[in-house]
Amino acid sequence: MGLDIIVGIKYVPNTTNVNIDPKTGTLVREGVPSVVNPHDLVAVELALRLRDRYGGSVTAISMAPPHAVAGLEHVLGMGVDRAILVSDRVFAGADTLATSYVLAKTIEKIGRYDLIVMGQETIDSSTGHIGAQVASWLDLPYVYYAIDVEYTGDGFIVTRELEDRVERYRLAKPALISAKMYSLEPRQVTLRDKLRAVIERPIETWSNKDLGLDPNCVGLRGSPTIVSKVEFTPKVPRKNIIFEGDLREAVRKLVQALVEEGVI
């Protein structure tokens, strides 16, 4: 009774250390390489664990420019079975609504699936919209902050973890879940799987020719969100205070300083 799972990934600039140009005040993007959104790797890990447990397949999808193929190769290297890159100029400039629409239509076209797994959010925009929106386009039950899934044959028991409690939901299949970030450690890329990704190349590229979507509903034109202004939070100058003394004394001074600053 294998599980056919679709997992969504986004290939994002690795913004772990983003530098701001002191002169222009803008982000230094020169030569910043992209990575698979780390929170999506948790979704991939969850999907792979479910496949390993119940059998079936994992298909990764991503709506992105062609260079995102490297991100799909990365998750194929982790053991994902198949990947679909949805790439078309008309999809460019999409907000979360237009993106989720394209992803939903992609999933519809894939057709056969039991479960969709997404990451909680992305490191480059942190909206957390996509999972909920795709679920609503496809009219699927949706649970977020998921940390584990049990397959019951006709549905799933999804465990989700909140700050103060753990909840269990019973979902009919097909369903969509977002994996809680940091809840699982993504597995490593292996030689065997990477070799398969490179040699068999189980990556398809779909354009809007394959999906046939109304250009008014995708890309910039299908995006009602307007980013009117971006403001950076003011940089708080660091005080560079070093607290001397033995550990106990230094910590006491530190706590006192934090209290004085109103931080704690």
Binding site: G77, V189, K194, V198
Partner: peptide
Amino acid sequence: DAGATLITEV
């Protein structure tokens, strides 16, 4: 380009 198979991240 000459036909070698490049396997990265391994």
